[in-house]
Design a protein around this nucleic acid. Structure first.
Length: 464
RNA sequence: UCCUCGAUAGCUCAACGGUAGAGCAACCGGCUGUUAACCGGUAGGUUGUAGGUUCGAAUCCUACUCGGGGAGCCA
């Protein structure tokens, strides 16, 4: 079918003249009268609706169309007419309308504002709501912008495995993957479940990070990134955690923590600029209905340096404001959410990298600093969302890495290939993990991760 | 998992120990170059579930379920 999408129409309404065109879409609202009716349709290609004019006598099935319910799918042929005086820049005068799929009076999306909580109960239909239309267009373009950013800089896009047999990645609870008969599990001599009978000959899990595999690839291609689904079986019940989410993990060789932060900052700024440029209607909408400081904030960030502060400096600042916190601040303890928020929302009022954390509160693979007490780690905190990136320079010195693993009681045999990387041409390298949903929350102002995933998986919920 | 708040018509809410209401949506009718259209009318409820207190419970108490917010864990 020769069809014009609304996006094309709004991009250049003047080019169609009086020639009949065909548009498709779903009814957003319908104002019907005896002789004339107004239908607004949306086809998902852009934020704006198209107003269709329907006059009795000019279309054969006037009564049938005027009776349609919100949500119906229509195919409309007519001619475009510019209406510079009116609320909408142009409208379509229908000559022919076919009902592709009728809706019903109990269509759950009414033409009024719904709460986000209610919309979560109709995830199969909420993509047709303004908010979610805007959101998933932004999400799609942000993903595209990320790929473009890395490709422009020569990073190789790598697909790391989703199933992993390493149960010691240490980033949280993992989902078990098995083909064993759960009603009749094979047991070993101690009476424990015999993993050697399982599909991979050992216990397997869904990945919590592609980093270790990413490091292997970075030490061959110099610059790589991954962008894929990630799974955490944590019983987290917050607006910022999902059991299944998407993560971007660049990893690059001959790079240190400073390079790592520069890359992260460039990337965030690139994506923000891209969205501001390509989704003005969407951002305008979020600014108006979700968070009216959004636009100003995004524009300011595109033009301003992110702040950088060491953990030790951060603790010193926070200690001066102890009275504002429920939890005490002290060197050696991890920063609480309230401390992080204070830093990024009150002290700096913009994104801030906190670096060089005490080694005891960070992962074993992070590079030990010369002070012997801290590691070359960085977290990027942003106002409203909190931690959006966690990264580090990796420990490339075999003896230091092995020493750290011993301290933490990690079994070297489980990491034999990871340690091999340090034996055969190991190089300085660094990387980070960006939570894609958290980035989308930051860009759109949406406050709950359940509203930036099309079909969110969280503790106790996987309905759609 | 812990703390806290909540659950009343399809949706958003009111009624706060004494006959469950409104706006929007729906349905019927009218009207209109309308634009969250408008005007008139109709219908719509075992007040989340199960117990308890009371002459009487949407309202007070207990448990459970679901949802919001906060904390922990993190991206």
């Amino acid at each position: 079918m020769e069809r014009v999408e609304l996006k094309e129409l709004f991009a250049a309404p003047g080019v169609y003249g009086q020639e009949p065109i065909t548009v498709c879409g779903w009814v957003r609202t319908l104002r019907s009268g005896k002789n004339i009716s107004f239908i607004e349709i949306n086809d998902g290609s852009c934020f704006k609706n198209l107003q269709v004019i329907l006059e009795d006598g000019k279309v054969a099935n006037y009564d049938e169309i005027a009776r349609q319910n919100v949500g119906a799918a229509l195919v409309i042929t007519g001619s475009l007419q510019l209406t510079p005086e009116a609320k909408q820049p142009f409208e379509l005068h229908a000559r022919q309308i076919a009902v592709e799929g009728a809706s019903a009076p109990d269509y759950p999306l009414q033409k009024k504002r719904h709460t986000l909580e209610y919309l979560r109960t109709i995830q199969h239909l909420r993509p047709r709501a303004n908010t979610f239309g805007a959101l998933f267009r932004v999400r799609s373009l942000a993903a595209y912008a990320i790929h473009q950013f890395f490709h422009e800089r020569g990073f190789l896009y790598v697909h790391t495995p989703i199933i992993t047999a390493s149960d010691c990645e240490g980033a949280g609870e993992m989902f078990r993957v098995t083909t064993l008969d759960l009603e009749n599990l094979p047991k070993d001599q101690q009476g424990k479940v015999d993993g050697s009978e399982d599909f991979f000959g050992k216990p397997a899990y869904l990945t919590v990070s592609g980093q270790l595999n990413g490091e292997c690839m970075a030490l061959a291609f110099s610059k790589i990134y991954t962008f894929g689904p990630t799974f955490r079986a944590e019983n987290s019940n917050t607006p910022r955690h999902a059991a299944e989410f998407w993560m971007i993990e660049p990893e690059f060789a001959f790079a240190d923590l400073t390079d790592d932060m520069a890359l992260a900052e460039d990337m965030i700024r690139y994506v923000l600029s891209y969205i501001l440029k390509h989704c003005p209607d969407e951002i305008q909408f979020f600014n108006q209905f979700v968070d009216n400081t959004l636009l100003e904030r995004l524009e300011r960030i595109v033009g301003a340096e992110f702040a950088r502060i060491t953990y030790t400096e951060a603790v010193a600042i926070l200690e001066q404001h102890q009275d504002r916190f429920t939890y005490p601040v002290s060197w050696g303890a991890d920063l609480q959410t309230e401390h992080e928020r204070y830093l990024t929302e009150v002290v700096f009022e913009k994104p801030v990298f906190v670096t060089d954390y005490p080694k005891d509160i960070k992962a074993f693979y992070m590079r030990l600093n010369d002070d012997g007490k801290t590691v070359a780690a960085m977290d990027l905190l942003v106002p409203g969302v909190g931690e959006i990136i966690g990264g580090s320079q990796r420990e490339e010195r075999l003896e230091v890495l092995a020493g750290r693993m011993q301290e933490l009681d990690l079994c070297e045999e489980d990491y034999w290939w990871y340690l091999d990387l340090r034996r055969f041409g190991g190089a300085r390298h660094a990387g980070f993990g960006l939570g894609f949903e958290r980035l989308i929350m930051y860009i759109t102002g949406m406050a709950n991760i359940r509203d930036v995933l099309p079909f969110p998986r969280t503790t106790g919920t996987a309905e759609f």
